[in-house]
């Protein structure tokens, strides 16, 4: 899933303090699971805004809504559309995709982001999310037995580990970040395939990633004829 964290409240408040009708719009998918912008977070943030508005003698009408996904047109139903059109500013707790999609669907509405979108990650344990994919466009997990050197190595080294690896940890954060090169080595060792690691991996083809501008996937078979 996409993992985000809420922006500092001061920044959020500055985004909306000049508006009267504010809609705090949550997203029911990734942002709910990563506890950054689901129904609960929308509730807490709305209440914070109400208290801050009262404290600053500002007249703010704060409405709240959480839709299933902000990156899909079908979830902007009649109720959501009415609430969005009625507001002066939409504070989106969706990821960066959600914020932009609202702007596309409702060009006349001002939208502000309430979260910082961070990475594609897994929920390792309650309250802990770690990056696992970099969305590089050409998956190499087959070559590394399911451990991604692109996302999990600070240098994205295809032939790691580097000299910054010590006791299985990365020098970037020796407390919390495991060395991907070491993890890959351990994995191959457990599978009795260490000899395969002797092969030097050629430079990765990055053209599937950011090269060539924004990504586009078009499936003719899935499209409606118009």
């Amino acid at each position: 899933m996409i993992v985000s964290e809420q922006k500092p409240f001061g920044q959020i408040f500055d985004f909306v303090r000049d508006y009267n009708n504010i809609l705090v719009l949550g997203c029911g998918t990734c942002m709910t699971v990563c506890m950054a912008g689901g129904e609960n977070e929308v509730g807490v943030l709305s209440r914070q805004l109400k208290l801050a508005a009262r404290h600053n003698n500002l007249n703010m009408n704060i409405d709240e809504l959480t839709i299933t996904r902000q990156c899909d047109r079908e979830f902007f139903d009649e109720n959501a559309t009415e609430k969005i059109n009625r507001s002066d500013v939409v504070l989106s707790l969706g990821c960066g995709v959600g914020v932009q999609y609202i702007v596309e669907l409702f060009p006349e509405v001002i939208v502000r982001p309430g979260v910082n979108t961070r990475f594609y990650g897994a929920n390792i344990s309650q309250g802990l999310w770690l990056e696992r994919c970099a969305g590089c466009g050409e998956c190499v997990l087959d070559q590394y037995e399911g451990i991604c050197p692109i996302a999990r190595c600070a240098k994205s080294l295809m032939n790691g580990p580097c000299g910054g690896s010590a006791d299985g940890m990365c020098e970037v954060d020796t407390e919390n970040t495991e060395c991907a090169g070491q993890l890959i080595y351990e994995r191959f060792k457990n599978l009795n395939k260490l000899d395969e690691l002797l092969e030097i991996k050629p430079p990765k083809n990055w053209s599937a990633g950011r090269d060539g501008g924004p990504g586009r996937i078009a499936r003719e078979d899935m499209m409606f004829d118009e």
């Binding site: 409240f9 001061g10 920044q11 408040f13 500055d14 303090r17 801050a52 404290h55």
Partner: peptide, 8 residues
Amino acid sequence: EIGAEKGE
């Protein structure tokens, strides 16, 4: 001070 204004 107004925490919201200071951002902290």
